[in-house]
């Protein structure tokens, strides 16, 4: 673990999520996000990253999913099983992977629709300062924005929710590398200037680890490795499988790497 203060901003303890009452998606997931930090949650497709984020940000009745074990603590308060809007108003705001803007509303209306949280951290002017392009497109329908602009609008409206912790799901998905770089830099700026902590869920491990302080690796619904960015980057298997810069000469298979699973819980 990196330097972990006594009470992290967000803490997950052994969280288990079950879909449709029968399908376990994640199990025994524990992680902490300290204040003012950027934490990356890495993993392949279907590893349970999005489920973990959704568990934190809250499920709806229609999702037919629930946290059946463990607890989620935000600023010392247990928020397990709360409705998404209750979580959001506490300052824990999600930028979802898809369906992230209201397409039939204009950019301005997207920002107006937000119900701000309890603390006042960000003003509308600051948001337009970070995302000047949104100010220009204020009257356009969000449905006509490009992928990068949509992501900016999603970040901007999440910011207006006054987050202390932003949960960002696949910031890089479907975007050009140059835009990903800009957005990642922006995330870092938000943390540095506003003090917003960020939990980044990414398949693009290289982009995430470039800005993160610490990271977790999720596989098959379990945390299998964690540590500071330096520690993660030093791990041979992570370099091989997530960053593609390993030095192995033999082509090992993903499932062959035994020591990789050392943290798996068997009970």
């Amino acid at each position: 673990m990196t330097a972990s203060p006594a009470t992290p901003l967000l803490e997950l303890e052994n969280v288990e999520v079950v879909y449709h009452r029968v399908a376990t998606a994640v199990q025994g997931v524990s992680l902490r996000v300290p204040e003012r930090s950027i934490v990356a949650l890495l993993g392949t497709n279907g590893a349970g990253k999005t489920t973990t984020l959704r568990a934190v940000s809250g499920f709806l009745g229609g999702d037919d999913a629930r946290v059946v074990a463990g607890r989620i603590v935000f600023r010392g308060e247990v928020i397990t099983g709360r409705m998404p809007h209750e979580v959001a108003r506490r300052g824990l705001v999600l930028v979802p992977e898809r369906d992230k803007v209201f397409e039939t509303l204009t950019v301005g209306e997207n920002l107006d629709a937000v119900v701000p949280g309890r603390r006042r951290l960000v003003t509308r002017e600051q948001v337009f300062h970070y995302f000047p392009v949104l100010a220009e497109r204020r009257r356009q329908l969000a449905g006509y924005l490009s992928g990068g602009e949509r992501q900016m609008l999603a970040l901007a409206s999440a910011l207006l929710c006054q987050p202390e912790l932003l949960l960002v799901d696949e910031l890089s998905l479907g975007l050009a590398p140059a835009i990903v770089e800009t957005l990642m830099a922006l995330v870092r700026r938000l943390r540095d200037e506003l003090g917003t902590a960020v939990l980044l869920v990414e398949q693009n491990a290289a982009a995430a680890l470039a800005v993160a302080d610490a990271g977790y690796v999720l596989e098959h619904g379990r945390i299998v490795y964690d540590g500071s960015v330096e520690r993660l980057l030093a791990h041979e298997d992570i370099r091989e499988f997530y960053l593609g810069v390993g030095h192995r000469t033999d082509r090992v298979r993903y499932t062959d790497v035994k020591q990789y699973r050392r943290r798996r819980r068997w009970f």
Partner: peptide, 14 residues
Amino acid sequence: ALWPFRHRPLRASS
């Protein structure tokens, strides 16, 4: 058919 056992799928219904 299952008596005296009760069949419960996982812990989800708890």
